[in-house]
Design a protein around this nucleic acid. Structure first.
Length: 801
RNA sequence: GCAGGUAUGUCGGAAUGGCAGACGAGGCAGACUCAAAAUCUGUUGUAGGCAACUACGUGUGGGUUCAAGUCCCACUACCUGCACCA
């Protein structure tokens, strides 16, 4: 009996079936494959079609791995702490715990529409005390190892979010979340010593199968450089000023020195004549905003009135202050070589400071220098005993030379700073520390974890730099676990990145109340083989997770030190003209109506068909008609052939193996958009044939299963199979059966196609040329061929004069 | 400024150096229908021609090659990231 394609009925049927009999079972014998999505934060806005894309990609890949004999770990959870969740609660006038739970329920319902093979027994939620107990535990371990510490310092402060931010959360001087200009605020902060892992975080990138773009971004963020620290005596004083330089080869060219206005010695270097100007400048710099500093790079500065001594040649050089020198990089002071550094050159020109060239350019000294010569190539000049050396060689040796001379030492520096880890907000993991007037900082005893948030009426941010928790006396006041005397709790909470820095470890042992993950399960099921998500986490989440994974490896919790072997960044789905989908732009496309009207299978296919998965794609609703029509035609083809018992022909066998080969190759190459067009192509080809045999239809259904699981399952069943498609193995193409016997190939004259011939693919050159000459007889009339090229199965080219 | 990415019909996009535009959307024409929708068939890069056909055509300008969207050199535009890190 023929049936028409009723996507709703089919999808309801299989949803119920999979609810009862999940297809992804761990029978203990199969090798594991861990395919992970970046877990969402449960926003109140729900999912749009852009969110679907990554989940569809990871599900296709998971199902493909299942059919290749793997037990696939494919979990889903909720990153529910943090600013967005709290802001949403404030906006709707609810408790964060309440609104978060509602949002999770809502998003879970929407995610289920995707029909991905998530293992819901592994579901986790970062705000669940059973989960964040271990987030707090990791913090305590970090503290015990000296990797969590407190520091009073000016930190990045978002006046709109009313909280401190990590460096990674500041983009162009603005808050990564809300876009407000970030200011500085002096606060005592918890810091995590990510800098202690800088070398490993950088070096281990080589081990990872990640997009080069992301590796590069992390490399630049960590920003390692090699150079030297050199000590410059101060004329007439005991102290020395240490500078960091990557170009110690240019030491003889240092004609002045610049200190950051925040440098400890800055004010004290002023003389009576310069004191007023120096103090004014220090104040000016302190009040200058980040944004202004980033946008307006015109050099400003003031001469302190003091001089340093260049330790190489004993010459006095003036000491200046300028905010182009950063206080928290290197030593906060630099030696300036205007001849060989653009910024120093600009400064020297503006303030009329001498320029001494120490590297010959093209073998000579430049007359009337108009820009710095920044290459480390050329012979040293004006450099005393270093004259005649090659600067490239000297650049490497100079750190050791200054070390021997006792005026400096080799030094490596990083751009990455320690991670500002406290937030002055309510909705986060409380930092499990108690401040005791007697004992100092004491960790909340491990057996008392989790330390949960108090239930409160008001949790809005205070804006004063104090967490709202500070106002809750009943929570703040406690007894010191060490001495039992009155003490106070730490009131800052952890940033939203805390839970996501390790959640992927927890999925495989989600109910463990003894350990964050058992070592046995970690060894068996971790790490993540494939991680799929947006590129927006290139330095934030992905750097923090690598840091925590390395730490947990170091303390023996897990046996690997990189969390994600392979990373795939899917492109963003945008609205018309590449505009990001957002509620305020009014261009959000919800999947709900599309699922109802076209079905889950159609939407899944269209998410892939819309463009190459790694590139951004503009959403166009009309396109989904195309994939729906395709599925209907496939369905009809099955209906037309299923009861006919069509015999296999050589052509059908060949087509079937070509189909397997095409789909598998494109899938392996992650070219998912062309997988879908491949299915369409073969559907068109098969429908033009006299009939399609059962084996070919079955093969088609198996190949389609990871992409459109419902219709594939239904067809598989209709063809008389009792098993699940996902218990079948992925078809293997017989390469020898793929080849066509004859093929139509193009015939060119002088590289331009002038006709075609149909010849055997293994035809000899003579046969091929004979056929070509015959086909193009009229055009070759009276011409002499000077060269004949024949590439079997591809092309014939006849070159004539 | 530095680094990376992208550029192909009306649109989304295909093309291991080998017939550019697969596949789809949209358009046009036709079939079915009282009619419309749906469906099916044909057609659809540009210019010229009744036609067979011819010329041109993958951001721009050069080059390598029998043959270039693809390789090399030099540019342009847009996007992303970083940006006074000494």
């Amino acid at each position: 009996m023929k049936r028409s394609y009723d996507h709703n009925a089919i999808e309801e049927k299989w949803t119920a079936e999979w609810e009862k009999h999940p297809v992804n079972q761990n029978d203990g014998s199969k090798p594991k494959y861990y395919c992970l999505d970046m877990f969402p934060y449960p926003s109140g806005n729900g999912l749009h079609v852009g969110h679907w894309r990554g989940y569809v990609i990871s599900d296709v890949w998971s199902r493909y791995k299942m059919m290749n004999g793997h037990y696939v770990i494919h979990p889903m959870g909720w990153d529910a702490f943090g600013l967005p969740a709290e802001n949403y609660a404030i906006k709707t006038g609810k408790q964060p715990a309440e609104s978060t739970a509602e949002n999770i329920a809502n998003i879970k319902k929407q995610i289920k529409q995707i029909a991905a093979v998530y293992d819901w027994d592994m579901e986790l939620n970062t705000t669940d005390p059973g989960f964040f107990r271990w987030t707090q535990w990791i913090f305590e371990k970090l503290y015990e190892k000296g990797l969590a510490y407190q520091k009073e310092m000016p930190i990045n402060w978002c006046p709109s979010c009313k909280t401190g931010l990590a460096n990674e959360e500041v983009v162009d001087g603005k808050c990564e979340r809300c876009g407000s200009p970030v200011t500085k605020k002096d606060l005592k902060q918890w810091m995590l010593k990510i800098t202690a892992y800088a070398d490993r975080l950088l070096d281990d990138l080589d081990k990872l199968d990640w997009p080069e773009k992301v590796k590069k971004m992390q490399t630049e963020w960590i920003g390692r450089s090699y150079g030297a620290e050199v000590d410059f005596p101060i004329e007439g004083r005991e102290e020395k000023i240490t500078v960091y330089t990557t170009r110690p080869d240019t030491l003889f060219g240092a004609t002045f020195m610049v200190l950051a206005p925040e440098h400890a010695l800055a004010a004290s270097l002023a003389t009576d004549e310069t004191r007023k100007a120096v103090e004014d400048y220090i104040e000016y710099a302190a009040n200058r905003s980040n944004v202004d500093r980033l946008q307006n790079k015109e050099k400003t500065g003031v001469f302190t009135g003091s001089y340093a001594v260049n330790p190489m040649n004993g010459k006095n050089i003036p000491i200046w202050l300028s905010d182009y020198v950063l206080a928290d990089y290197g030593t906060g002071a630099i030696m300036c070589v205007p001849a060989h550094d653009d910024r120093d050159f600009e400064f020297a020109t503006k303030f009329d400071i001498p320029v001494i060239q120490v590297i010959a350019k093209d073998g000579k000294e430049i007359e009337n220098m108009t820009e710095a010569y920044t290459e480390a190539s050329g012979t040293m000049i004006n450099s005393g005993e270093w004259n005649g050396m090659e600067s490239a060689v000297l650049k490497k040796e100079a750190p050791h030379i200054v070390e021997k001379m006792g005026i400096g030492r080799a030094k490596k520096n990083f751009k990455i700073r320690d991670w500002v880890f406290s937030r002055q907000r309510y909705w986060g993991e409380p930092i499990p520390v108690i401040h005791c007037p007697e004992c100092g900082d004491v960790l909340v005893p491990e057996e008392e974890l989790p330390l949960t948030l108090p239930e409160v009426e008001h949790y809005e941010p205070t804006g004063t730099g104090e967490s709202p928790l500070a106002a809750i006396d009943s929570w703040v006041n406690c007894k010191c676990p060490k001495c039992g005397k009155d003490a106070k709790r730490e009131t800052n909470t952890m940033p939203q990145w805390a839970g996501s820095s390790w959640y992927f470890l927890r999925y495989v042992d989600v109910d463990n109340d003894k350990e964050l993950v058992s070592r046995e399960k970690a060894d068996k099921y971790l790490p993540v083989d494939m991680y799929i998500g947006g590129v927006e986490h290139a330095v934030l989440h992905l750097l923090y997770s690598r840091f925590w994974t390395k730490f947990l490896y170091d303390i023996g919790v897990i046996g690997f030190d990189e969390p994600f072997k392979k990373l795939f960044n899917q492109g963003m789905i945008t609205g018309k003209n590449g505009i990001k989908m957002s509620k305020s732009k009014g261009n959000v496309v919800s999947p709900d109506d599309l699922v109802r009207d076209y079905g889950c299978d159609s939407l899944r296919l269209y998410e892939l068909f819309v463009g190459p998965p790694e590139l951004d794609s503009e959403w166009d609703d009309r396109g989904i008609d195309g994939v729906y029509r395709f599925l209907s035609r496939f369905w009809n083809m099955v209906q037309d052939n299923k009861d006919r018992d069509v015999a296999e022909t050589p052509e059908l066998i060949r087509t079937r193996h070509q189909l397997i080969d095409t789909i598998t190759q494109r899938l392996e190459a992650f070219s998912l958009n062309t997988v879908v067009s491949g299915f369409m192509e073969f559907n068109n080809r098969l429908s033009k044939m006299e009939g399609v045999d059962r084996k070919t239809l079955e093969t088609y259904a198996l190949l389609l299963a990871p992409f459109a699981p419902h219709i594939a399952s239904e067809v598989w069943e209709e063809l008389g199979n009792k098993t699940s498609v996902f218990d079948e193995s992925w078809p293997v193409a017989d390469k020898s059966a793929i080849k066509d016997d004859t093929k139509e190939i193009g015939v060119q004259i002088n590289g331009k196609v002038r006709g075609t011939v149909k010849i055997a693919v293994d035809a000899s050159k003579d046969e091929a040329m004979a056929a070509a000459r015959e086909a193009l007889a009229d055009k070759l009339e009276g011409k002499t061929a000077v060269k004949e090229i024949y590439v079997p199965g591809k092309i014939i080219n006849i070159v004539i004069k």
